[in-house]
Design a protein around this nucleic acid. Structure first.
Length: 342
DNA sequence: CAGACGTGGTG
DNA sequence: TCACCAAGTCT
């Protein structure tokens, strides 16, 4: 406690940040509440996701699932549906499980202690700190990519952010500049990191920390943060069959622990009897963080009802159509393929 | 614990 | 164009 109130040469930095935040905080829907449920959902939605990309998903999610009870009572597939197009779909599965954890373990009351929040599925150290500080006056820095970037620049610190100890390292730095109001401090760091201290071409002339920033004084902001580990991508080839008849087509739910877990997809094989119905093939290229996908989709229009029925029955595929498919969550490239059928 | 997990924006 | 990155967590 005391280290936050005295003996810190750097705490003025945190206070400057707070002053800046009072004038420059972004007006976002989750900024007007301390409801831990809403803050939690917001923190999960915006993991590795820009505000502009996730804002509609956040609003739609809160409208449909306004509280823990509603979310816990929902079907998993509907929760995943509300994550459609957002990516990192395990987040949807995890918030659903966590809502049931809250119902079972905390009688539906969102836990207020950092250690309890941390036990929730899908909630790690960053998110637990954010919820704790914003909703319950916890005094823990919510160290994320913005903290890495801002702190490494302010202190011209070349600690490698790909190192697994980076979280602890930058947490200690954060505590040196952290003021009493940690909730606003954490949110101020996020706003500064995304609006001013951007990865490329930071707006240093607008930055409240400019005169404290060592990287700026050395004209070396582009050299921080240091990140040695490069992402390596591999090529992957997928093949699907768009098996359809009279406007209806076949899908199934992915069950494995590969990409797009629990999302829906097309059959990836057909029987010999269907092969004569194959028409054209379309090739889609789709990039993931770690994979360059090439997806081949074969259009199979089944003009024989007997063959269609046999294939559906033997493989237990789900029959859907353009309209009903809106109620299912598909990977983006398959969603695009379906929309192009119109 | 290093690698996997999505999508869209950016320079 | 394409590598990098954006409010991380899980295994």
């Amino acid at each position: 406690m005391k280290k936050n109130t005295q003996n810190s040469d750097f705490q003025h930095i945190g206070n400057k940040l707070l002053d800046w935040y009072k004038e420059n905080a972004r007006d976002l829907p989750f900024r007007q509440t301390k409801d831990p449920y809403k803050i939690w959902i917001c923190e999960i939605v915006f993991q590795q996701t820009r505000i502009s990309q996730g804002l509609n998903h956040y609003n739609n999610f809160i409208r449909r699932f306004p509280d823990v009870q509603t979310l816990a009572d929902a079907e998993e597939d509907e929760v995943i549906l509300y994550w459609k197009g957002l990516g990192y779909y395990s987040r949807a599965i995890n918030v659903h499980k966590a809502s049931q954890q809250i119902m079972n373990d905390y009688n539906g009351v969102f836990p207020s202690q950092y250690e309890d929040i941390l036990k929730l599925k899908g909630v790690g150290k960053y998110t637990a700190a954010a919820i704790s500080s914003i909703c319950f006056e916890g005094k823990i820095p919510a160290v994320d990519g913005n903290f890495y970037r801002v702190l490494s620049r302010v202190f011209a610190d070349n600690f490698d952010i790909s190192n697994s100890r980076a979280f602890n390292y930058f947490s200690a730095l954060a505590e040196m500049i952290m003021p009493q109001n940690v909730g606003d401090f954490n949110q101020a760091m996020m706003d500064l990191g995304s609006e001013i201290c951007k990865p490329k071409n930071p707006l240093c002339h607008e930055c409240p920390l400019q005169e404290d920033c060592l990287a700026f004084s050395m004209n070396k902001t582009s050299e921080f943060p240091v990140k040695t580990k490069k992402i390596k991508t591999e090529d992957l080839h997928l093949k699907y069959y768009f098996v359809h008849r009279n406007g209806r087509f076949l899908i199934r739910q992915r069950k494995d622990d590969f990409i797009w877990k629990k999302l829906f997809e097309f059959p990836d094989s057909i029987s010999e009897k269907l092969e004569p119905f194959s028409k054209g093939t379309k090739t889609i290229s789709h990039k993931l963080t770690h994979k360059n996908l090439t997806i081949e989709v074969v259009d199979v229009e089944v003009t024989s009802e007997a063959v269609w029925n046999e294939f559906v029955t033997q493989n237990q595929y789900i029959i859907t159509d353009l309209e009903a498919s809106h109620e299912k969550s598909f990977p983006k490239p398959l969603e695009n393929y379906i929309q192009n059928q119109k």
